[in-house]
């Protein structure tokens, strides 16, 4: 008998169902001075784990003007090592200080035996891994005393031992741990191409009530002979195929806070704002279409 998961609340305040952008250090000053017209900002939690200095200085000032989401990339929640208590402590301190509306981590692991690969490595989709993830997400939610969102990652391999499709694994994780979902539509597209599944089937299987946030980003195509593999590089504009999949997601889940992620080859701030505007336009069109 599985215990009923504790239902934790999100942080104070709300994030509008309007597109936001990732906050990156080269844009700090411009964001503060020009206050671009985006609904909210998302920061990588670990970039603010330092004790002081410029990152925290700017985040504090910028936070005063925008709703905030904290997105973790290093907790290694799916690892079989014990949870890193120092990392969790730093995250909790950051959450107390900045009161983010959303806090998210990844459906992945990045360390074992104390060694960190600092990458979002895939889990096998087995009952064993599912039970492990449910336990770990619950531990983190208990420690942080709030709900966290779990994001699907791009993957470049599948394990022979997997017995569940990723979407079933995610749906079960949500149900059993009480976590929310950060649905990365680009990652769904990338993995669908890399592994040959239908991204529409993925979207249909996701429990709509759990989806709290959507990510969009650009990928890179690598070629190995006749074969292509898509890599989640966050280094360019969102691809047309991913915009189309986003439209499907909006139809299925309604307007959800959507984030434009860009990490490598960071462009001018206005390019991110423009991408956010495109996401808002799709939400607007779908809403209008639904009303008509």
């Amino acid at each position: 008998m599985v215990a009923k998961p504790a239902r934790y609340r999100l942080g104070p305040g709300t994030i509008p169902a309007q597109a936001g952008i990732g906050l990156r250090a080269p844009h700090y000053l411009e964001v503060l001075e020009t206050r671009p017209p985006v609904g909210w900002l998302e920061a990588h939690s670990e970039n603010y784990f330092g004790a002081g200095g410029k990152p925290l200085y700017y985040l504090e000032r910028i936070r005063a003007h925008y709703p905030l989401s904290l997105h973790g990339i290093g907790l290694s929640i799916g690892s079989t090592d014990a949870l890193n208590s120092r990392h969790l402590d730093r995250l909790k301190t950051l959450i107390r200080r900045f009161e983010p509306v959303l806090v998210s981590e990844h459906l992945s692991w990045s360390s074992v035996g104390g060694r960190y690969l600092n990458d979002l490595l895939p889990l096998p989709y087995t009952e064993e891994a599912l039970a492990h993830m449910v336990r770990r997400v619950s531990q983190v939610q208990d420690y942080l005393e709030r709900q966290i969102l779990i994001e699907n990652v791009s993957s470049y391999l599948q394990y022979t031992e997997s017995t569940l499709p990723e979407w079933e694994f995610i749906a079960a994780l949500t149900e059993r741990s009480g976590c929310g979902l950060l649905l990365d539509v680009n990652n769904i597209y990338v993995s669908a191409c890399n592994h040959g599944f239908d991204p529409g089937v993925y979207l249909q299987a996701i429990p709509a009530a759990a989806v709290r946030e959507i990510h969009l980003a650009g990928f890179t195509v690598n070629r190995f002979g006749q074969r292509e593999i898509l890599i989640d590089t966050h280094n360019q504009r969102v691809y047309p195929q991913v915009w189309a999949l986003y439209r499907q997601a909006v139809r299925r889940f309604g307007p959800i806070p959507t984030l434009i992620e860009w990490d490598t080859d960071l462009p001018a701030l206005e390019v991110l704002v423009d991408e956010a505007r495109r996401a808002d336009a799709i939400v607007g069109e779908e809403r209008h279409g639904a009303a008509a």
């Binding site: 391999l157 599948q158 394990y159 022979t160 031992e161 592994h195 040959g196 593999i229």
Partner: peptide, 16 residues
């Protein structure tokens, strides 16, 4: 442990 569909396991591991 890697399913070789189209690309071999070695190539897929190389991406990581």
């Amino acid at each position: 442990c890697i399913r070789a569909s189209g690309l071999g396991g070695g190539r897929r591991l190389q991406v990581y």
